[in-house]
């Protein structure tokens, strides 16, 4: 496997920053009641989304989670459609019918966030079957949290994909918590050490490669996913990426269940700062360049926000459309 070029290293930085700034803005908007619903963000976890997305082609697929904005932004989803969807506006990518937890953007292979944990694990083998049937060399990545890994669909999906050697990559984002429940208190085999890799170890039982990686190191994630992608024609892989969420499970979560040390640890291992340091070391980015980049990206996000603000809400009767291909509802 080739090491990433300077250009790709910079691209990883750009995408992580875009995810971070997008979600920081979404949090603000949520706090100001501009965005309805429950909002789960991935602040601190950007290296997983971006390590995955940069190891994929544009036509590869992602099945995502309730904490999925980062996956979509990293995969190249347009910010305007995404932000307008978070607002519930008519020209959101899903016309306001999906919202934060149920967004899809098929144009970039993003086959859907999911409000039901681990559901992507059983959709993925089918996407793999379709890839194989079409004799394509695409792959599908399904992401899920450490908590979701304890649901049955994880086991059914991994078993089926392994049995039929389907081009699926299972990526567990282990951020140590399933809402308020610690990983070690819900998962058999979890070691007291945060990055023990008990979920990756399950791969052995299915006879597939399993890797436990530092999910705050975008290069480590990129390498693992690139390896999995390169062998996808031989079957699935399971990757467990250890990361830290800096913010609440959802916006408004008081986080009484954890101390401040963990977030401090997260900030010390900030994947974006790490990537900036690496780029600086290689002479690929200086402070002025970084500032400039941040300004440009803020402008992109400003644009998405003004677009969402200016967009109309859906007409109420639009609630009756999109149910079936061509059929107007009557009953």
């Amino acid at each position: 496997m080739n090491e990433p070029t300077g250009e790709l290293l910079l691209e990883m930085y750009v995408r992580m920053l875009r995810v971070r700034l997008f979600e920081e803005r979404a949090r603000e908007l949520f706090a100001n009641a501009r965005i309805p619903g429950f909002l789960h963000t991935s602040v601190g976890q950007e290296a997983v989304a971006v390590g995955v997305a940069t190891a994929l082609r544009r036509d590869d697929y992602i099945l995502s989670t309730h904490r999925g904005h980062g996956h979509l932004v990293a995969k190249g989803g347009a910010l305007r459609g995404l932000m307008a969807e978070l607002y519930g506006k008519a020209n959101g990518i899903c016309h306001g019918k999906g919202g934060t937890m149920h967004i899809a953007d098929v144009s970039v292979g993003y086959l859907g966030a999911n409000g039901v944990l681990a559901s992507g694990c059983v959709l993925a083998p089918g996407v793999g079957l379709s890839i194989r049937h079409r004799k394509s060399d695409q792959v599908v990545v399904t992401l899920f949290g450490d908590g979701a890994a304890n649901r049955g669909p994880f086991h059914e999906g991994v078993n089926m994909a392994a049995l039929w050697k389907l081009p699926v990559i299972f990526v567990c984002e282990n951020n140590r918590w399933a809402s308020t429940t610690a990983h070690a208190l819900s998962t058999a085999g979890a070691s007291a050490r945060p990055a023990g890799g008990s979920i990756a170890a399950r791969a052995a039982g299915y006879g597939i490669p399993g890797e436990s990686v530092d999910g705050n190191d975008v290069l480590a994630v990129w390498r693992a996913v690139s390896r999995a992608r390169a062998r996808a024609a031989q079957g699935p892989s399971l990757i467990e990426a250890h990361t830290i969420r800096w913010v609440g499970h959802f916006e408004g979560d008081g986080q009484a269940y954890r101390g401040k040390d963990e977030v401090a640890e997260g900030r010390r291992t900030d994947p974006i700062a790490r990537q900036a340091a690496l780029l600086a070391e290689r002479g690929l980015l200086d402070a002025a360049g970084a500032d400039d980049m941040r300004r440009r990206m803020s402008a992109e996000i400003d644009d998405a926000v003004s677009h969402a603000e200016a967009s109309p809400l859906p007409e109420p009767h639009e609630a009756l459309t999109d149910l079936f291909a061509e059929w107007s509802w009557r009953e």
Binding site: V122, L123, P125, G126, L129, H133, V140, G157
Partner: peptide, 10 residues
């Protein structure tokens, strides 16, 4: 679930 994954991708 896999039927849906397959159906939505062709």
């Amino acid at each position: 679930g896999s039927a849906m994954g397959a159906a939505m991708t062709g």
